[in-house]
Design a protein around this nucleic acid. Sequence first.
DNA 1: AAGCTATGTGTAAACGGTTACACAAAATTA
DNA 2: TAATTTTGTGTAACCGTTTACACATAGCTT
Lengths: 328, 328
Amino acid sequence: MATIRDVAKEAGVSVATVSRVMNGSGYAHEDTKKVVMAAVEKLNYKPNEVARSLYKRKSKLVGLILPDITNPFFPEMARGVEDCLQQFGYRLIFGNSDEKRDKEIEYIDTFLQNNVVGMIASTSEEANENFDNLDIPVVLLDRTAEKLPAVYSDQKTGGKLAARVLLDRGSKNIVLIRGPVEIKPVYERYMAAYEELKQAKVNVQVMDSSLTLQGGQTCVKQLFEQYPETDGIIACNDIVAAAALQEILKRGIRIPEDIQLIGYDDIAFTALLHPPLSTIRQPAYEMGAQAAEMLIKRINQEEVEVTHEKLPVSFVERQTTRRKAEKT
Amino acid sequence: MATIRDVAKEAGVSVATVSRVMNGSGYAHEDTKKVVMAAVEKLNYKPNEVARSLYKRKSKLVGLILPDITNPFFPEMARGVEDCLQQFGYRLIFGNSDEKRDKEIEYIDTFLQNNVVGMIASTSEEANENFDNLDIPVVLLDRTAEKLPAVYSDQKTGGKLAARVLLDRGSKNIVLIRGPVEIKPVYERYMAAYEELKQAKVNVQVMDSSLTLQGGQTCVKQLFEQYPETDGIIACNDIVAAAALQEILKRGIRIPEDIQLIGYDDIAFTALLHPPLSTIRQPAYEMGAQAAEMLIKRINQEEVEVTHEKLPVSFVERQTTRRKAEKT
DNA sequence: AAGCTATGTGTAAACGGTTACACAAAATTA
DNA sequence: TAATTTTGTGTAACCGTTTACACATAGCTT
């Protein structure tokens, strides 16, 4: 790799001049510019970002922490982040945290050691303190904290909406599958749904499940044994809903006639399920993109107040819920 | 952030001593070590990786290029890479290429500018030349090239296997959905399946589709119009297979009785489809992990010959293909 | 006791950029 | 034409590490 000194020698100027030409900073004679650019071209010179980063004390790198890229909700978000950042010349250092505090901290540390210019993270509640005394901007994604800017979706409305959908379409014996209570957004939608259900005069049961397929399957099997009269299920996410759907089909229960089912997230494959799954849509890609945008604004010091961007969710009506007209 | 100079001052020693203690290189008196470590502790000193990287001309960063993290096949792979690399203290810079040559080149360049210690990439064929004169190790993932080490799966056997499954289970009018021919592994499995089908005395039709849901839907709709007598479909990947499945169900065709369907990849949600999709499994996570392992070996100069690791694929028998006994 | 080797530590030069500062030449002003 | 401002360029310090080298001292050998 050619260095700035090689270019300077080739062009017969000093390194300062090369640097100025490259960055368009300070003065440089037109003729000199040409000579320098020719040398740059000839040697295929690309400035070393590491050296630049060392002097400036900030790189073109942004740290991204997500719980698990393997969960289909997150790739969309990651892509939103990447697409936006990429346009501004930023690159992503990425890590999966598995919602584990120590992994989060480990990543935060190494990001810092690499002079990242900012961070985007969906991290567990307690880890937020690790972001406290940083002198680089941080944006929370799909999570919130009072002192930190954040982009997330309206979990309360989402949970409430899911409950209302089942209620309005006539379910009377509803099981609410609650995800891990430590995961704030998941807990919030559960809570909102629960409260909405409680206000209606219907039978409500709560069951616990992890957010994974396995967890969903275990939970759902138990569900039908414990509450065979169930005629409505609100799942904590689409994966668990898919597990429920499978179990429903296996038991020969008619859907949506005998039982209604609603998921959460609207990940890509829900439309491919049979019957296609009704769900609450979170705009994952947009969330990622907006978080990136917010971060960039903060990097450029254009926005300093802590802003919380709450994106709307929506009910995606497919075929595991009845048409509103045809209540039973 | 505390620097090595701060630590040196605090401990009353020189920066060289601090460096030696931190890295366990050269001599250092026991007492000195203690004093230094105490200072490190007190100031919460973490060495700046950027400075280190500048001097050593290599960082702890590995570049990863994947076509599109939003395609469910890749997150598994990415996770495999990350889990392995993470254990050895390496971090990932990540970029989506969308199979576009210029995006690939852009990422390769910025990775290099950031002194990455190695790269893992699933890149389009023509871009490989960009890896040619690099002085850092590169491992291809899910792709191959003669001069470059690679980890991929046995596409030929996979394609052949898919064809054999349908043949052995009695399909006579088979449509083979071919993905984009520019994508080498996708083309290879197509070709292998095609040859296997050609050898059998069955009716074979070939249709084109992109690898996306939309592409699949369009293709499949046309498929049944053009070839209504079809009793077997081999899809280029699971997503397209899912689209096919949906269309089959919509048309009231019985599966697997009237038509058999097989996908490719075995991404997570195929098991959740109704009926669960028979498919050819590629060990995505293992591929990622092995690529990472191979890269690390090369970084440590433990392995120098160009090795090609071809991982086996397998038929995952679910319910869109008949039991082998019950041929029609 | 003299001459080794092994141990322990500091100084300063890298690594590859950016930029403050100095200075000279050209252009503008009075 | 002299004074001033603008333009153009180079020198060297700096960013935070690592390490070659020099040097001092302690512990061994004979």
